[in-house]
């Protein structure tokens, strides 16, 4: 099977979808930013009990919060992106990539067919998947391209 076929056949649930943190819809903006910093997450899933009601990302921090201290104490629900674009865990990777590209998003929450949160499909998760498929091409290269030799060498 070619890689392009695999991208069409592989469901999202087989990837590492762990790059997010969960926060409550009642948390303040300050709390959420802190939780994202502590867990080193780029994306917070805003939950109302078990339901995903929005996401809040590093881009939101930059765009909405960084220069607006007055928003600190407000609930995150005022600044989050409500009803974000989501993918289902049985979608193929190819479908998810197209969704990402079309909607210009970097975080794509993944829900099970029953509607519960399965994870977050991110650029980073996809890059790891790709590197895992082609380790020799991707990992086994010198880190700085400018410092390599064109020939195979021994001593």
């Amino acid at each position: 099977m070619s890689i392009f076929e695999e991208l069409h056949n592989h469901p999202l649930q087989q990837l590492d979808l762990g790059h997010y943190c969960r926060v409550s819809v009642h948390d303040s903006v300050q709390d959420v930013v802190q939780q994202m910093q502590v867990s080193n997450s780029n994306c917070a899933f805003v939950m109302d009990n078990d339901a995903l009601v929005g996401i809040f990302t590093d881009r939101d921090v930059l765009q909405k919060v960084a220069t607006h201290n007055e928003l600190w104490s407000q609930p995150v629900s005022n600044v989050m992106t409500p009803d974000p674009v989501v993918a289902r865990s049985d979608y193929s990777i190819a479908t998810a990539l197209k969704l990402m590209d079309e909607h210009h998003v970097r975080n794509l929450p993944v829900l099970t067919p029953e509607g519960s949160v399965a994870g977050n499909f991110t650029h980073h998760a996809f890059m790891r998947y790709l590197a895992d498929y082609f380790p020799t091409d991707i990992y086994n290269r010198p880190s700085e391209a400018r410092r390599t030799t064109r020939h195979r060498h021994g001593a």
């Binding site: 930013v33 802190q34 994202m36 910093q37 590093d58 921090v61 930059l62 919060v65 960084a66």
Partner: peptide, 11 residues
């Protein structure tokens, strides 16, 4: 980057 802003500057 925005990572620097959101993780090292804000708050």
């Amino acid at each position: 980057t925005e990572y620097d802003v959101s993780k090292r500057v804000v708050g």
